[in-house]
Simulated scan of single mutants.
Amino acid sequence: MQTVLWTLIFLATYCFMEFMAWFTHKYVMHGFLWSLHKDHHKKDHDSWFERNDVFFVFYAVVSIGCFLLWKYHIFWAGLPIGAGIFAYGLSYFLVHDIFIHQRFKLFRNVNNWYAKGVRRAHKIHHKHINKEKGECFGMLFVPFKYFKK
């Protein structure tokens, strides 16, 4: 029974992270922490790292914190929550940083309808290089208007 409960918590956390990604992007990254996110829209440096990567580190710390709370028997659901946050972060890294932005030269030839829609939606978002008017959505939930055959 515990395995079923942990699996449900893991899946719920993973799905909730899609909301958190949208919320953080719209109200934090394009809000009061724009100073950390703007180099993602307009690269103003020669480094491979971006100030925007601080957001990845924040969620990694939250995930690790959940693992530690579980390990030291402080919070029994820390393991599935930490794993859900980690799994979403890994998915996000693979889709956003590797597939879309090509920070590593992998998945260059993926060319199905879903991949094209995700790329198209992200390109439209990056068309706006300023803080305002950047259309925001999650990584997995992309409005259907971007999917064309």
Rank of each mutant, 00 (worst) to 15 (best):
Met1Leu: 06
Gln2Ala: 14
Trp6Cys: 08
Trp6Ser: 08
Thr7Ser: 01
Thr7His: 10
Ala12His: 02
Thr13His: 09
Tyr14Thr: 02
Cys15Thr: 14
Cys15Ser: 15
Cys15Asn: 15
Cys15His: 15
Phe16Ser: 10
Phe19Cys: 01
Ala21Leu: 13
Thr24Met: 15
Thr24Ala: 15
Lys26Ile: 04
Gly31His: 01
Phe32Ala: 10
Phe32Asp: 13
Leu33Glu: 01
Leu33Ala: 03
Ser35Thr: 13
Lys38Cys: 09
Asp39Glu: 07
His40Gly: 00
Asp44Gly: 13
Ser47Thr: 06
Ser47Asn: 12
Trp48Arg: 08
Val54Asp: 05
Val54Pro: 00
Phe55Met: 07
Phe55Val: 05
Val57Cys: 11
Val57Asn: 13
Val57Lys: 09
Ala60Val: 11
Ala60Leu: 14
Gly65Gln: 04
Cys66His: 00
Cys66Ala: 08
Leu68Asp: 10
Leu69Lys: 11
Tyr72Ala: 04
His73Trp: 02
Phe75Asp: 12
Trp76Ala: 11
Ala77Ser: 07
Ala77Cys: 06
Ala77Trp: 02
Leu79Pro: 03
Ala83Gly: 04
Gly89Lys: 00
Leu90Met: 11
Ser91Arg: 06
Tyr92Phe: 06
Val95Asn: 04
Val95Pro: 01
Val95Glu: 02
His96Met: 00
Phe99Met: 10
Arg103Pro: 00
Phe104Cys: 14
Asn109Lys: 01
Val110Tyr: 09
Asn111His: 11
Asn111Gln: 05
Asn112Ala: 09
Trp113Cys: 12
Ala115Asn: 01
Lys116Arg: 14
Val118Pro: 01
Val118Met: 06
His125Leu: 08
Lys131Glu: 10
Glu132Thr: 11
Glu132Pro: 06
Glu135Ile: 14
Cys136Pro: 09
Gly138Cys: 12
Met139Asn: 12
Phe141Val: 11
Val142Lys: 02
Pro143Trp: 11
Lys145Gly: 11
Lys145Met: 14
Lys148Arg: 05
